[in-house]
Design a protein around this nucleic acid. Structure first.
Lengths: 112, 112
DNA sequence: TGATTATGCCTAATTTTTTTAGGTATAAAA
DNA sequence: TTTTATACCTAAAAAAATTAGGCATAATCA
């Protein structure tokens, strides 16, 4: 498996938050951000990323603009207003989920 | 969606850790532990749990024993030696993934 | 009494999303 | 000249959850 399972489930939240942090990004840059941001511990494959980007665009959260740089095409993605709302929702949910997860992992039965 | 996406990806680690913490547990008890442990914020459905338990058993990490309590059957699951090893591996990986995730979410481009 | 809730196991079909395994192309570095 | 980095992407398969139930006992509530 390329990405850890926890990253798999957080794919869209990660994409949205990275776009929030950086204004606009292109796909390849996102894969590098995940790799570098985690000091190489975590990777997302392009085969997982691009469909995820397209789903977010399809859902109406992203806008795109293409540029040619050094003879190669780059497709930049950025959040629109709805995307910014969605980012806030997903990141809040994600943070709460992490807290819940940490509590669950410590859970012990009262009668145990 | 019943369980948050992050819980989805951590299903097996959660099950293993709960068994580690509590010696033995039965399915219904695990669903309650997740619900109560997260103060109701997170739930896993039985339709997700039971197949996950069966996969872990199939993989050789769990042993079972059935009992009848109050006229109803209970199937207890507990870790075997290999399951304890696997729990340590998965929990280490999970904790590292959470750290990576938190770093990724803060990531900003150098040239941004 | 009768209906609902809680307890307790489970599965089939569908859906979602990732992985596997590529394709296409330019440019730089070894 | 081959590999690495950059840059987009998809089709088919696999994995795993959700949806939508089934089956059953016991306790609680109206």
């Amino acid at each position: 498996m390329e990405a850890s399972k926890i990253i798999k489930g957080s794919m869209s939240a990660i994409i949205l938050q990275l776009l929030q942090n950086n204004g606009r990004m292109y796909g390849y840059e996102i894969t590098k951000a995940v790799r570098d941001g985690s000091r190489g511990k975590t990777k997302i494959t392009e085969a997982a990323l691009y469909p995820a980007l397209h789903r977010l665009e399809e859902a109406g959260f992203l806008e795109t603009e293409s540029e040619i740089v050094d003879g190669r095409i780059r497709k930049y993605y950025k959040l629109n207003r709805q995307g910014k709302k969605e980012t806030a929702l997903q990141i809040d949910a994600l943070k709460e989920s992490i807290l819940s997860l940490q509590k669950i992992l410590k859970y012990k039965l009262k009668n145990g």
